[in-house]
Amino acid sequence: METRNVSICYQDYILTDGWSTDVNYKEPIPPNLMEGSEEYSSRNQSKEITFVTAYFNLGKIVKGPFKTFSTQTYYKWMKNYAFVYNDIILYTDLEDLAIKFKLERSHFPDHMTRIFLRKQNEFWAFGLKQKIEKIYNQPDYPKWYPNTVMASYSCAMHVKYDLIEKVIKEKLVNTKYLAWMDLGYFRGNEKGIFSLKPPQNIKDDHIAFVQIDKYVDMTPKQIMFSNSVFLAGGLFIGRPEYLILLVEDYKKAVDGLIAMNIMNTDQQVLYCMYSLKSQFQPRVPIQRYYSQSRFLWFYLGDICSKNSLFLLRKKTKLREFIASSIFL
């Protein structure tokens, strides 16, 4: 991966001044009490991660005053998936992108890359477009590009949770952990194949996210209008049993926020869900990772890749020890 100057800390980053503030959630449910948990616990699961990603064609996306992203931008970024030695599930509505993605990963076994061509109108998230447009067209609604300007972009952020739900319900995952990862998560020039492993301290009854800013008590309207971010939505990891609950709670939150005539992207919805000043009470707690590096948004991916290197070194040392013992 691209070399990044970060300090790795395999525990929740705990500070005073708001970083360790408790947020809104119910106590986690023991896995054995959850509906459908037997089907996951009975499988011969590896402790690997299956990643879900997607690209749906929205045309050009304007981000701030100087950045414009197009399909070609994502074609460039997705090339880095050629180096990711994990099972990847891709959803897209562009056949050309699907073909190119498959070619980029053609050196891996076929079962490690599954691609599904789907139309946008097949998903709950894109069905919200007209309602979100109506909210954004209010004369006093703040304009944050593209979050509160381009309704289809907001829908594309919500569809992550559609796809996580689809993968789980269609039993497409056999690994212990499942993760969402944006198609453009790797933006440097990756060099050499690497795999992504769960963080050493991952909590099985939590969902792992990167925490971007310290938690501040705000109402849903304040969060949406200020475009505030508490958790990064580019990568999150959990067990399927708990991710399905997160998805259900997320969809309820989106419907509730639309009823309140406010909306933004998934990152603001997550903030609203876990805000102590909201009416929502998610059933799954979050495990927050934080780094002071300027590459904070990619910190969880860095932990996963560096944990892979840690485990590889550990196995190598064990093999060396066994080999040396044979000749003693």
Rank of each mutant, 00 (worst) to 15 (best):
E2S: 09
R4T: 09
I8M: 05
L15H: 10
S20T: 05
S20L: 05
V23R: 07
V23E: 07
P31V: 15
P31N: 10
L33F: 12
M34C: 15
E35V: 04
E39W: 15
S42K: 13
Q45M: 14
K60I: 05
V62T: 13
K63N: 08
S70H: 05
T71Y: 07
Y74K: 00
K79R: 06
V84K: 01
Y85S: 08
N86Q: 04
L90T: 00
E95K: 13
D96S: 09
I99Y: 02
K102S: 11
S106T: 02
F108A: 00
L117E: 06
E122T: 05
F123R: 00
L128M: 13
K129I: 01
Q130Y: 04
K131E: 00
K131F: 01
I135H: 00
K143Q: 13
V167D: 01
K169I: 12
L172M: 14
T175W: 03
D182C: 02
G184S: 06
F186D: 12
G188Q: 12
E190W: 12
P199Y: 00
N201S: 08
I207G: 02
F209K: 00
Q211R: 09
V216L: 11
M218Q: 11
I223Q: 05
I223R: 02
M224C: 07
A232D: 10
P240N: 11
P240Y: 09
L245F: 08
V247G: 06
Y250W: 07
A253P: 02
L257P: 03
N261L: 15
T265R: 01
Q268R: 02
Y271E: 04
Q281V: 11
Q287F: 07
Y290Q: 10
W297T: 15
F298D: 07
L311E: 15
R313T: 10
K317I: 15
L318W: 14
I322A: 10
